[in-house]
């Protein structure tokens, strides 16, 4: 068995992040395709308990050290370098998140492995793997093959199903003792988001309401739905103008520009001013009574229907799904 796929287990505040499961899911596929083992590597201060969620692995590498509290990209990369060398790793996947940014290039500089960023799709052809990256703000895709299937891949969050990587139970854990140099970046503390209003530009899921919401009372419906979807409510101008929601929730030319993973537009016709603030959302689903509303020109999915019929149905359906999952 030559090589192996190394997945950098990303965790924050004692919890494994979603991107890790996405990587494990697709990592499993790559490992099976290449007929090599899948190794998540967990590194941190007190992280051994995390290994119990990595049942999908063939073996888990564990690097525990009190100095590894929010380690810098340099420190992580130098540990990974040792693992790559020692365990003859061919492919490393790293989360394309803020948390892990910079590790890939560093590791690439250490190992001379090529680095592919912004990977959002992986397909298998003949004997090699095709990595599809999203460049230029999503306007262009590139397909790249790694020579000898060797390299470092940074995966865009939300590109692969996380469920595929979620396997409880633990694989065998191998502790690695890797000497650490003097840390050149010291973690001091976390700064929690201000207790004030939600920052809608940082929300992954937005439930947006427009004039169609009709009155302030109905906003609570949207809030209920947002609560279930773990998102926040935002609005188009008329709603904010009415004083039904604070200015911090306004999307569009006069408000915020948002790029969430999901933008659920309810009763929004989609004037250009509004579109300007949300056009780049990854997934836009719009519900509006007017089938000719411009929002449908940029939405991925649409339904020409009264939002007061759809919202309660959605709340119920989403509840059911969450209960099941």
């Amino acid at each position: 068995m030559q090589g192996g796929i190394l997945v950098l287990t990303e965790h924050l505040k004692g919890e494994i992040t979603e991107i890790t499961y996405e990587m494990l899911g697709i990592g499993r596929k790559m490992a099976d395709f290449l007929k090599v083992p899948l190794y998540p590597v967990v590194l941190g201060r007190n992280v051994s308990h995390l290994t119990s969620h990595l049942g999908i692995a063939d073996r888990i590498f564990l690097v525990e050290n009190p100095a590894l509290d929010m380690p810098s990209p340099n420190v992580v990369a130098s540990i990974l370098k040792n693992v790559v060398k020692e365990k003859q790793i061919s492919l490393v996947t790293i989360g394309g998140t803020n948390l892990s940014m910079g590790i890939g290039p560093k590791l690439s500089a250490f190992t001379a492995f090529p680095f592919i960023n912004f990977c959002k799709n992986i397909t298998f052809a003949d004997t090699s793997i095709l990595f599809t990256s999203q460049l230029f703000g999503g306007k262009i895709l590139t397909d790249t093959r790694l020579p000898n299937n060797r390299g470092i891949i940074s995966i865009l969050p939300g590109s692969f199903p996380a469920n595929a990587g979620k396997v409880e139970g633990s694989a065998s854990v191998e502790r690695l003792e890797i000497p650490l140099g003097e840390p050149e970046v010291i973690f001091r503390k976390f700064i929690e988001p201000e207790a004030g209003d939600v920052d809608i530009t940082r929300q992954g899921i937005l439930v947006a309401v427009g004039r169609g919401i009709q009155n302030q009372e109905n906003i609570s419906l949207a809030e209920e739905l947002a609560g279930i979807l773990r998102g926040a409510v935002c609005a188009s101008r008329p709603v904010v103008d009415q004083g039904w929601l604070p200015l911090t929730r306004q999307v569009g030319k006069s408000g915020m520009t948002v790029k969430p993973k999901l933008y659920l537009a309810l009763g929004i016709s989609g004037a250009p001013e509004h579109q300007e603030g949300m056009r780049n959302s990854q997934l836009i689903i719009a519900v509006n009574t007017d089938p000719k509303a411009p929002i449908f020109d940029i939405a991925h999915y649409g339904a020409a229907m009264d939002i007061f019929e759809v919202i309660p149905a959605l709340i119920e359906e989403a509840r059911k799904r969450k209960g099941a999952g």
Partner: peptide
């Protein structure tokens, strides 16, 4: 419609 929307969200890991 609600069912289909939730399916779409689930496919993308949004729910």
């Amino acid at each position: 419609i609600a069912k289909r929307i939730v399916e779409i969200l689930a496919e993308r890991g949004l729910i």
